[in-house]
Write a protein that binds this DNA or RNA. Structure first.
Lengths: 343, 343
DNA sequence: CCGCGCATCTAGAACGTTCTAGATGGCAGT
DNA sequence: ACTGCCATCTAGAACGTTCTAGATGCGCGG
């Protein structure tokens, strides 16, 4: 209380203001604010009180500038993809307890991946977590020379040396879906694929080999799809126009499956009575009661955790083995699959 | 070329490295990097070349620290709300041409609004744009004493003096929807509301007064809903269980309407043959071909533009009038509404 | 030949924090 | 009383930028 109030006029309060008010040095305030060792209980309390009174808030930018660690994880994601936004939630949940902040940078119509990544780097992120990146692998490799890079859900072949990959075993997921449908008695199982989207090639391949192993080569049918509802709807209309229709469909992802589902319902085709539908991802979409979609679950919290963990391990200089981290998928049976109808 | 290569060992290159390599002062490099006046064409070129060669990237955090302007707009949004993510796209589109960066801070299960806002302030955002904030109005008023605050889609009554509000004329939107349905010949129009969600009260009131003006008081029916698909599905099941069913439904938003739609389709109730459905927001969801939802469009790009514009105006010290900025809604007629069936 | 203005460039101090190295003071052991 | 140690505190230099104020050099009118 010896110092006068020292209200900072219109500016944001700084350590110096707090120090003046508490009658101690700036360094001591810094210690208290960081919760570091080296301050007595008495002064700790006095400093905190002063800070509270003038509404002090630490300035992360200055903090980062000084300590060469920023403890900032840059995340690039697509605003329109539920799979991405669900992952972001998992990333927050994994990063913050580990003492890392998350900087988000969205890909939007007016804002490409390049721009999104530039913004993260300019912000001094220590590592990049890219959700389903679509830039060329060489670009990723180049980025990885500057900062640890984790690609989530996008497989890279051949794997650039320094880029970590965290993904679901997409092929295995497709296999589980096919096995489930075949066990129900289906034989004509079609696949609506994801084209060149991350993961699509593996799912397509998994579908094909699973069908083959069941001796169903003649029923293999891959329809061009995509990752949006419209893509699924379009493929479903193609199926409706055919004379002999498959009794089950494995869609590239949940959004695509939702489009399929809706088109069938509109056309009066009962699901799962006349045709079964399986999605992929297990985003919040599929869990909604009125969609109730059987789907191949990606373990989103686990993917997020691995991605964050790997990024942090690299930052801590741990010698992490090269190579992908692959998470097992798990089929979640809900209401859109059942035995084939009389046919 | 007089200076030696000067490669920065393992660190990130700085202005000083570029300066050394180009054989000029740090200040001059700064000038060139900012594109400011005061450098000759020759040295400009030389500096840019040097920067390019060593892969220099400006450090926004240091930049911000020095110049007291951060030109950073903080945006709080909900990852799960398409309305929010669509708005974020609009905010990027409006802010970046105006020379402002956007810092995103998501609200997630592990991360409340308080935490989201704290992170933005610690990052030195100059203004806050909050999408559908649900914290108490007093908290917003308190924040506004520190930094300009714009509340998007959340009306505040009584309006705290310094908080700007940008919103759609929700009541008017509900009126348009009712007018449209009545013009088609509907009389029994029900409303599935949004409870305490931002905007819900206005929409409810707009629905009521519109019904009244058409002399349809006896058909006023408000069902408890919410903002998710599940909420809509639940309300739809309630309707299905009733003996006399309304011939049209106005849902709180598109997600809610989607749930309604889906439940009706599953129950074999034809839309719009037996019942018409209207949504609200015109998010990308409703525009999808297979949903094709008649909905009250919020002019999302315009809302984003106004919110950004208002924040910037405050920062530029313009004397902006207090009071809300209200954007007109516009009914978009698609495939889920039609004349009532024979009944 | 002087002085002036202009264009170009630079030194050095900020910005708000953290970190290093050391100062201070109290207390126990000799 | 001296020494040494510990706990507590502080001065001052970083960090990478921008900004202010001035230095430098050059052309040109008088």
């Amino acid at each position: 209380m010896p110092a006068t109030p020292e209200v900072p006029d219109g500016k944001r309060p700084t350590l110096a203001h707090v120090a003046a008010r508490a009658g101690v040095s700036v360094a001591l305030v810094s210690i208290v604010m960081r919760g570091a060792y080296g301050a007595s209980a008495a002064s700790r309390e006095r400093v905190l009180k002063a800070a509270e009174e003038i509404g002090y808030r630490p300035d992360t930018r200055a903090r980062v500038l000084r300590s060469n660690r920023s403890r900032l994880l840059g995340v690039q994601f697509g605003l329109r993809h539920p799979f991405h936004t669900d992952l972001v939630e998992g990333i927050y949940a994994a990063a913050e307890p580990a003492g890392y902040q998350v900087a988000l940078s969205a890909v939007a119509p007016t804002r490409g991946e390049r721009q999104a990544v530039e913004a993260l780097l300019a912000d001094r992120c220590e590592a990049l977590v890219l959700l389903g990146p679509e830039v060329p692998a060489t670009r990723l490799a180049h980025l990885a020379t500057q900062v640890p890079v984790v690609s989530v859900a996008r497989r890279l072949r051949p794997a650039p040396p320094a880029v970590d990959v965290v993904r679901t075993a997409d092929g295995e997921g497709a296999r589980q879906a096919v096995d489930h449908l075949v066990a129900l008695g289906h034989r004509a199982v079609a696949h609506i694929d994801g084209g060149r989207a991350p993961g699509a090639a593996d799912r397509r391949r998994g579908y094909r080999t699973a069908m083959h192993r069941h001796g169903l080569d003649e029923h293999i049918q891959v329809l061009p799809g995509g990752l949006t509802e419209d893509d699924g709807a379009r493929a479903a209309r193609t199926l409706l126009a055919e004379k002999t229709r498959p009794s089950a469909v494995l869609a590239f992802n949940d959004r695509c499956a939702t489009g399929v589902l809706d088109t069938f319902l509109r056309a009066g085709v009962a699901v799962p009575g006349e045709i079964s539908v399986v999605g992929f991802d297990d985003t919040s979409l599929s869990r909604l009661a009125h969609i109730d979609l059987t789907t191949v679950a990606q373990d989103i919290p686990r993917l997020a955790e691995l991605a964050v963990g790997r990024a942090i391990a690299r930052l801590d200089g741990e010698a992490v083995p090269d190579g992908e981290q692959v998470v097992a998928p798990r089929l979640v049976v809900r209401g859109t699959t059942g035995p084939p109808g009389t046919d």
